[in-house]
Design a protein around this nucleic acid. Structure first.
Lengths: 137, 137
DNA sequence: TGCCAAAATTAGAATTAATCTAAATTTAGA
DNA sequence: TCTAAATTTAGATTAATTCTAATTTTGGCA
């Protein structure tokens, strides 16, 4: 994702290009920190001194709906944002709390393929889809 | 997990067996609903009329720490509890919101093995562990 | 059994993340 | 430039959860 691609996605949905949307997108595109809304708010203060918390939340929701960023919740009660929209997973370092991106393909061989660099203690998969009970003919 | 096993785990940690802990454990052991704290609070009202919301939260945290139940967060801002502590995953029906347990083994063949009953639209894995940077010799 | 200290529960206040509201501002297009 | 629609803003509100401090219950022991 580039700033240009993000701009195109916004226009595609009939959304205006505003300084707030540009700066917040730009920030997310240049960090690997998986920040929370509040961390985004703090981070863009300098470039957007008058930006309100509500705008950060609005903008993050807008960017998420436009497919420019992805929201996820690695720990209850805290939503984090990621401008890496390629399908991937997350690895949380239990010692440091750092969140690392794990390529989608790695899951094929799961534990083995991650074994060298990431020592997996636990993992949790959540599937989203449509359930068709097996009993229905 | 049985009520007896839960009792043993509490005693093992030096925790008292209280009516609140027994009733909440018993409720979680007999539902497949993956309830939230508030749903547990509503559900045990009849058997524990004087039970406060704080006790429900305290008890759920205690039961989680004791390994009697598991907490997870399928959607940002909502923690849910599951007395099925066997390693497993979750499948969320996008139409109904129902949460189904998926056996751990199914992940080996991933999408294929779930294909008949569960039509996967998306899934998200979160790994927990320890990161050892590849650059460190 | 009765007492005591520790553990647990309770009600309500406090906190935190996030959304809502309504007014003010900005934007894009005619 | 003018205008309607979109966006931003500050602050109020909501929802989930934790905290606090007082009260009650528990289990061990004389």
């Amino acid at each position: 994702m580039t700033v240009e691609q993000a701009r195109a996605l916004l226009l595609e949905k009939g959304l205006n290009i505003t300084p707030q949307r540009v700066v917040i997108t730009d920030y997310l595109l240049h960090t690997i920190e998986h920040p929370s809304a509040d961390e985004v708010f703090e981070a863009v203060k300098e470039r957007l001194p008058s930006c309100s918390r509500a705008t950060v939340y609005n903008t993050l929701n807008t960017l998420t709906e436009a497919g420019i960023v992805r929201a996820f919740s690695p720990e209850p009660g805290k939503t984090r944002y990621d401008a890496n929209i390629a399908p991937h997973h997350h690895f949380i370092d239990l010692n440091t709390g750092a969140i690392h991106d794990i390529p989608w393909e790695c899951v094929d061989q799961l534990c083995q393929s991650l074994g060298d660099e990431f020592k997996i203690k636990d993992y949790q998969i959540t599937f989203y889809g449509e359930h068709r009970p097996a009993s229905t003919p």
